[in-house]
Design a protein around this nucleic acid. Sequence first.
DNA 1: CAGCATCCTCGGCGATACTG
DNA 2: CAGTATCGCCGAGGATGCTG
Lengths: 147, 147
Amino acid sequence: MIRSEAETEAMIAALRAEMATNGHRRDDPVRVTTALMGDRWSPLILLVLGMDTWRQADLRRVLGRLSSEGEISQRVLTLKLRALEREGFVARHATGHVPPQVTYGLTDLGRELQEQVYRQVCWVAERKDRIEAARAHFDRAHFDRAD
Amino acid sequence: MIRSEAETEAMIAALRAEMATNGHRRDDPVRVTTALMGDRWSPLILLVLGMDTWRQADLRRVLGRLSSEGEISQRVLTLKLRALEREGFVARHATGHVPPQVTYGLTDLGRELQEQVYRQVCWVAERKDRIEAARAHFDRAHFDRAD
DNA sequence: CAGCATCCTCGGCGATACTG
DNA sequence: CAGTATCGCCGAGGATGCTG
C-alpha cells in the first residue's frame, strides 16, 4: 500500500517505465490497445480474416453467425474495415468495378495482431469454468443466495 | 473467397472449432474478452494492481496520472473493481470499519490476466511506429494530401 | 453489391451529493 | 474514506434509403 506522495510518484514513474518498455513513452498504448481489441467487432473481424480472403457480404454472414447476436450492420462493417485498414492491419483489394468486387485480407502486421487476439480469446475460453465459478461465488456472497 | 452456402457453413464450423479449442464452445469467449480488455479502465486497473496492493484513493490518483486524460471517477472505479472482483481477478480486503480501510490486490487468475494485458500493451507499443506510418499512408492516399 | 448519409437508440462514463 | 444514488452527456453502433 502506498503511504506518501513520494511513493505514489515513484510508483507512477515505475509503471510508466514498465508500460513504455523501449522508449515509447508518449501517450498510452493502453488506449490504442483498447481501441483495437475493445470494440464489439474488430476482434471477430480479425479472427475471420485470418483464415482466408472474403467479400464484404460473406464477412457479414460469417460474423453474424459467429457472434451470438444478430448480424453486423454493413455500415459498421465498412467502418471497422476502414479503421483496421488505416492502422495497417487489413488490406483491401478492389478487382471489379461493375459490379464492385472487393476482397479483404490481413497484412503481415494484421496477422501478428490476429495471433494476439486469438491467444487472448483462447486464454479466456480455457479459464471459462474458473471465471464462472468466481461469478457464482460472488453472487452467492453478495445477494445472499437470492437468485 | 467464399462462393457457396456450403463453403460459408464450413468456414463457420471451422472457425467455431478454432475458437473453442478445447471443447469450450458455448457462447463466444470473444465477448468476454472484449468485456475484459475493451473498456476504458479495466486494463489500467489490472496493470496498476499488479505491482502492489492499493487503497481506493491511491488507485484513483495513480490511474488518473497514468491515463492521458483526467482521473477516473470513484464511482466508475468502484464499479470496475466490483466487476473484476466478481470475475475472480481482484481480491478485496476490508480491514477497518471506522474509518473504512479497504485494499485491493490481484488473485492468481488476475495475475495471469495482467500478464496477458501487459503483453498486449507492449506489443502495441513496440509496433507504434509501424501503425503510425500506416495511418499516415492511409490518410495521404484517401484525403489526397489535404490535411 | 460496395459504400455513404441520415436518424435514432442505448449503455458507458463523468459529476455531484449523500450515508456510514 | 469507502460506497451508493441520481442525473446527464456523448459516442458506438443499428436501421433504412440512395448511388455507381
